[in-house]
């Protein structure tokens, strides 16, 4: 999708969707206005704004998505315990109700902001924006966003993350990627969680899961992990380190290319909202 205007016209689909003129009068004298904007234009704009906030402070934002109960919170707890103590992290938790997940994270001494969505089935960029204003990004290296447990709706909403991690837990079955192609195509990393259950639930085949991911043309790497027995943790932590390093390298190149205004893009601070400091509110 185009980052500047939120449209998703490409060379490939242009001929299919672009009609005749920019403005045309219809036969009845009514005015027909060609728009060609993504329906999620406002969300995408807010998401880009969030990404710029993260980038200004060299913070890596990782969005965790999965069905409910796939082990997102357990992964975060295990990550907090085993991550390099020099890396400073915070967690934004999304759930329909309760502060339970945020409390689990806080027990480990990590700041957690709970977003309760009520009946909304996904987080959106505006919710993340509010949550980010309750975090001091200058004191963080990674912000994890734990999305609402759902393999459908969260896939449609860019939050401003740098990486999407989609968890597929062993009890769910290895064919989830072809059942939920939109979600699994959004993944930058697919994590097969609860891998300690593989010997028991032996109808789950890793190779089949990978095969199904190929069916949807996903190039995301696949890792296996158990938060319970910590197998695969080293690979996950290494992946996180790589993401931090490559994001920093990207930003350095970008800043060298545009050193004059100091901002990362002309979009920064064009959003209309009342408070715009990164002071900790709590």
């Amino acid at each position: 999708m185009c980052d500047t205007c939120g449209c998703n016209i490409t060379h490939g689909n242009e001929s299919l969707i672009r009609p005749g003129g920019k403005l045309a009068k219809t036969e009845s004298g009514k005015e027909a206005v060609t728009v060609l904007h993504s329906l999620l234009h406002e969300n995408d704009h807010a998401a880009q704004h969030n990404r710029e906030h993260f980038d200004r402070h060299n913070v890596l934002a990782v969005n965790l998505m999965s069905s409910p109960g796939a082990g997102k919170t357990s992964l975060l707890e295990a990550t907090i315990q085993q991550l390099d103590p020099d890396l400073r992290i915070a967690v934004i938790e999304g759930d329909l109700e309760t502060e339970n997940d945020a409390e689990r994270i806080r027990k480990h001494g990590v700041k957690a902001i709970q977003i309760t969505t009520g009946s909304a089935c996904h987080l959106d960029a505006h919710m993340i924006h509010q949550a980010v204003h309750n975090l001091d990004l200058s004191e963080l290296d990674i912000v994890f966003i734990e999305n609402v447990g759902n393999l459908v709706c969260p896939a449609s909403f860019d939050l401003g993350q740098h990486q999407n991690v989609v968890l597929l837990s062993v009890p769910e079955g290895d064919d989830k990627p072809v059942k939920y192609p939109v979600m699994f195509r959004a993944a930058d990393l697919v994590m097969i969680s609860k891998s300690d259950l593989l010997p028991i639930l032996n109808d789950f085949k890793i190779e089949k899961a990978k095969h199904y991911l190929h069916d949807i043309a996903s190039t995301a790497p696949v890792i296996e992990l158990s938060s319970k027995d910590s197998s695969g943790m080293a690979v996950w932590l290494e992946w996180l380190d790589q993401q931090i390093a490559s994001r920093k390298a990207y930003l350095q190149t970008y800043r060298k290319a545009a050193p004059l205004n100091g901002a990362l893009s002309p979009h920064l601070h064009t959003m209309n909202h009342p408070a715009h400091s990164n002071k900790v509110v709590k």
Partner: peptide, 21 residues
């Protein structure tokens, strides 16, 4: 081959509106 790229099919777009004064 599975290494394909999407040309079209993930759009969700407001294409046009017709207005009356």
């Amino acid at each position: 081959n599975w290494r394909t790229t999407l040309i079209s099919g993930d759009e969700l777009m407001l294409m046009s509106v017709e207005l009356e004064k």
